[in-house]
């Protein structure tokens, strides 16, 4: 009844119109990132900051090779970013897996037993505040060996969110579910698989997601203790010591990007595995 001059939504919209319409979602991040890079470019061209400009990552020989040939392999440590990343990722995977196993197991234990929780909670709260870098000398003293020390640093950085969230998830199991298990006199094994794990799973995943980011953040600290090994962390450290500032910047951007991908991956896994509650 109301006269309308506008076309029906969805009916042949020109690409330009579509762009302007959806611009609300992509325009602000583009402007923000672009503006930041531009500012950086201007500041470093003008010599206000000592960092190389973003454009130099492509104009400089060393960083251009690294960007365009991630798979190159000239033996030894002279390898492309892909290989550096794979080496770091496998290290992170080991430390993180260990952290997940121990964190979930201990988290469940202290979640079920308030006394054990009270005994160890102050210790855990204290240890989780220790920075990854501070663990490096301790790890070296403990293990006398680079490889396990690096994995330990990742492990000890990543374990706390998993442990604390798992324990909270177990504590949050609704009394109703516990009562069902009690009245049915479920075996503890059955309670574990049918009630405890599904109920605590969203919490466990929250912990796992926070920790994957931390584990990746710890990689530089971990690889500083391993001079002469392949890895993105040592790559940056090495570039710093040889004063290749462009490589440092590239390495840092690369680490950020991988961290983002890992986080998205965990978020996706979370929505897939964790039952909708």
């Amino acid at each position: 009844m109301v006269p309308t001059s506008s076309r029906r939504p969805g009916a042949s919209i020109s690409p330009l119109r579509w762009l302007t319409r959806s611009s609300g979602s992509w325009l602000p991040p583009l402007l923000g990132t672009g503006g930041f890079l531009l500012l950086w470019q201007i500041l470093s061209s003008a010599g206000v900051i000592a960092l190389p400009a973003p454009s130099s990552l492509f104009t400089e020989e060393r960083t251009r090779t690294l960007i365009f040939y991630p798979f190159y392999d000239r033996g030894g440590l002279d390898k492309g970013l892909f290989w550096q990343t794979m080496a770091s990722l496998s290290r992170v995977a080991q430390g993180y897996t260990l952290a997940a196993l121990v964190g979930i197991a201990v988290g469940i234990t202290i979640g079920l037993k308030p006394t054990i929780n009270r005994a160890f909670d102050p210790l855990f709260q204290f240890l989780r505040m220790v920075a990854p870098l501070a663990w490096v000398p301790i790890a070296l003293v403990l293990f006398q060996n680079n490889q396990p020390a690096a994995i330990f640093v990742i492990f000890i950085t990543a374990i706390w969110p998993i442990l604390i969230n798992t324990a909270e998830g177990v504590r949050q199991i609704p009394q109703d579910y516990r009562n069902v298990a009690l009245v049915l006199q479920m075996s503890s094994r059955r309670f574990f698989t049918k009630v405890l794990i599904p109920s605590a799973l969203p919490y466990i995943f929250t912990g796992l997601r926070i920790s994957i980011g931390l584990a990746w953040l710890a990689i530089i600290a971990a690889e500083i203790v391993m001079p002469g090994t392949l890895g993105i962390g040592f790559f940056i450290w090495d570039a710093y010591q040889q004063n290749y500032v462009g490589e440092i910047v590239l390495g840092v951007i690369w680490i950020g990007a991988i961290g983002l991908v890992l986080d998205r991956l965990m978020a996706w896994l979370q929505t897939r595995i964790s039952p909708g509650q």
Binding site: Y177, N179, K194, S199, Q277
Partner: peptide, 8 residues
Amino acid sequence: GYALLPWF
């Protein structure tokens, strides 16, 4: 509150 397990 019924106390049914929502994941089943």
